[in-house]
Each structure stands twice: as structure tokens, then as C-alpha cells.
Design a protein around this nucleic acid. Structure first.
Lengths: 210, 210
DNA sequence: ATGCAAGTAGACTGCGCAGTCCATTCACTT
DNA sequence: AAGTGAATGGACTGCGCAGTCTACTTGCAT
């Protein structure tokens, strides 16, 4: 009967993507294609003109989320102190992972990883693994400069990432609390703990006195 | 027609529970009641004689998993050194959480928390929250004895728990690797890092020399 | 013996949902 | 003016699954 004026030439796909993004992060893979199409203001058939199946739509939405997560995680300016660089990174890392989008993405991926093995592997490689690798490189350089004790850089990077976002996840995941924390000093405290844990063994190189 | 000799008087329920436990931890809430009943060697109607709905069966199975997880996490003997107690705890904590059952339980709960809010809250309170509270009490006592620096005990407990099981979860969750690590020394290294991070500020109380 | 509690097989209902089909309508090109 | 490509709504198929119903069987207690 009445066909809307063909809504838009090509942003149709982007509307679908953002609707799928929102729906999958909020409801997980349960989100139905009918609801996603409706949310995008688009007919179901149009959805299937752009994506061959629900699984591919899901993968596309997760890729969007991945890019969004990794976007602002590059290393900060070189002119900063190690401590300041780690804090800067820590604040951004926590902001990304603890925000609703990060939580939703994590929840969806944890739930569906067994059913989408290659998507999960991609997610892992371009997310946590890459982040850890970059951080490990930064830490290794600091070790070579004598600012940190000699230690396996991978181990150290995993340790810091764990400290930054670990046990705190549980109340958010399991008792629907939004983060609700201004949180500006958590990264500070954590990074200071990390630096003490990896302080050089030889106390002759003292860090700058307060 | 032929009815099995009424299999067993009451272990019927326990067979259902363990089948549900296995199925839900392996497949999540997707696991169908038909398959669970079949796996238990029991008719579907029998399942519904014991559990009013799939949701309640799921809750019962998760409670079993919870009890199993918390069973062996009590504090170790008082005669141990702080470091030894933390390592002992760390080894058990890691063993529980990183084992397939722990991963399955975590995956199922993360995925279904939004659909079972009160079950998720119970899980949180009797799992992560209780663990953190006990550990915080232990750490607070150590702080009062001067073995650790004065610090918010909750923060310190969360920190140690995060360090023990944090970033390591990702490869297991997202790239179907079984833990595969003998792992006996990971807890040692982590606890040593933690103790350095929270070493007393006043260096007059030295820890026992090696 | 009789009756009750509990189990069994299997058919059946109803629902939600992925994916398809179709007749129609619009926008844009030539 | 005609044609092509894309979008539309809505009906339709098929599947898997939660939960119910029925008719039957068994063990135990009295």
C-alpha cells in the first residue's frame, strides 16, 4: 500500500546499524529482528536487503561497538610522566569499560562467545589482547629506563588492566547499579598501587619526592 | 506403555538438578527443558512435578553452583603467615573461578542477570560481595597489626581479587581456551605484588628477611 | 486387595521468531 | 515517458520450545 518516501538513500543502513547496536547491547542476541527493524523505522525486508542474516547483523553491530571502544584508547602524549600517562590511560579505560555501552557489549559477547567463535576471537584480538600488548610495550620501555622493576611485561600489563577494571564489574553486572561514581580518583589510587608493586628493587633510584 | 520401574524414589530430583546444572553451565539458559529431562533420564512431566517452571529450575541449578563455589573458600588456618594465607586463598579462588564450572556459571549469570534480577542480586551478595567482605576483614586485621599500610580495606580487598582474576578471564571467555595452566606460581607472584603495593609506609617494620 | 503417590511416553497447544514472498510505490536516471 | 533499483507493509511458512493433558504403570503402605 502506502510506502514511505523511501526514507533515505543510504543512511538506511546506518540507521539499521545503530538500531541493532542499541538493541543488541541492551537485550543481547535475544533482540528480535522485527523490533530492530521497527526501531530503525524500516521494513524487515529492507533489513534483509542489507544484511543476509541476523548473525551477520549482530557481527556488524559488535564491530561498531569494538571500533567505538578502541577509538580513544591510544597512548597519551609522550611528554607526560609515566605515572601521569598511566593515570590518563586508566581513566579512559575505566570510562569506556564501565559505561553502559561497554557493559552491554561485554555482556553480549560473554553470552554469545560460544555461538560465535570467530567473532569472539576477533573481538578478543582487537580488544583486550591489543590493549594489553600496547600497554606491555609501554611498561617494557619504562622497565628499560629503570622506572619499573624488571618483570614480565605481559604479566605487568595484565596486572594493571585487572586492577583498573576487575572486581568492580560484579556489582554492575549483577545488581543493576549504574556506575554512578564520579570516579576521578580511583584510577589515581590504583595506578599508585601498581607503581609501588612494580617499583624498582634497587631503592637508589627514588621516584620524585612529594 | 512401558514405564520404567519408577527409576528412583527421590534421587530423581537430584538427577534433574545435576542435569540442569550441567546443561545450564554449558549452554546457558538456552538449554531446553526437553534436553535436560532427557539428560536426566526422566520424563518431562516429572521435571514439572519437581520444579514449577524452567526459571525456577534455573535458579535451583545456579544455587547449587553457588554453594559449590563458596564451599572451599573459607579462611585457611590461623597459624599461617599473612602472605601464606593470601596465597592459599588465591590459589583456591583462582582454581574455582577459572575452572570450567566457574566460567560456565559466570557466563550464564552475566548473560541472564537482566532477566533474573533477584537471582542475580542473591548471587552477587552470597558470592563476590561476601568474598570481598571476608577478605576485607582479614586485611583490616593485618593493617591493625601493622603488616599492611592503612588503606580502605574494601578497596584493598577489591584490588587483590581483581589482581587474582581479572584480565586473564578474557582469553578464556572469548577464545575457547581451557585454562591449561598448572598455574601454581601465578598466585604467588600476584600476592607478592599486592603485598608490595600495600607495604607499610614506615619501613621500620620490615617483613621477615628471605 | 486396594488406593495413593510418583513416574512414563507421547501427543498437543500456543507463542515468538527468523526468514521468504508479493504486490505496490516511490525516487532517480536517461 | 519509461524503466530500474530500492523501500514498504503485510501475509505466510516453518521451527523450536515451554508448558499441559491423557492414559497408563509401578512400588509401597495399609
Amino acid at each position: 500500500m502506502a510506502a514511505h518516501p523511501a526514507a533515505a538513500p543510504d543512511d538506511c543502513r546506518s540507521r539499521l546499524l545503530s538500531a541493532a547496536y542499541a538493541a543488541f547491547l541492551a537485550e543481547g542476541y535475544r533482540a528480535s529482528v522485527d523490533r530492530i527493524a521497527a526501531r530503525a523505522g524500516v521494513a524487515k525486508q529492507t533489513l534483509y536487503n542489507h544484511f543476509p542474516s541476523k548473525a551477520e547483523l549482530f557481527a556488524a553491530a559488535i564491530h561498531v561497538a569494538m571500533e567505538e571502544m578502541m577509538a580513544s584508547l591510544g597512548d597519551a602524549g609522550r611528554h607526560l610522566d609515566l605515572r601521569e600517562r598511566l593515570i590518563d590511560f586508566g581513566v579512559r579505560y575505566r570510562a569506556k569499560l564501565l559505561a553502559p555501552a561497554g557493559i552491554g557489549c561485554y555482556r553480549a559477547m560473554v553470552a554469545e562467545a560460544p555461538h560465535f567463535p570467530e567473532l569472539a576471537a576477533t573481538f578478543y584480538r582487537s580488544g583486550p589482547e591489543q590493549t594489553a600488548a600496547r600497554l606491555a610495550a609501554t611498561l617494557e620501555m619504562a622497565m628499560q629506563r629503570g622506572e619499573l622493576r624488571r618483570e614480565d611485561p605481559e604479566f605487568a600489563a595484565n596486572l594493571l588492566l585487572s586492577m583498573l577494571v576487575g572486581h568492580e564489574l560484579y556489582p554492575i553486572l549483577f545488581s543493576g547499579k549504574p556506575p554512578a561514581e564520579p570516579d576521578s580518583d580511583a584510577a589515581d589510587r590504583i595506578v599508585d598501587c601498581f607503581l609501588r608493586a612494580l617499583a624498582p628493587e634497587n631503592p637508589s633510584f627514588k621516584r620524585k619526592a612529594p
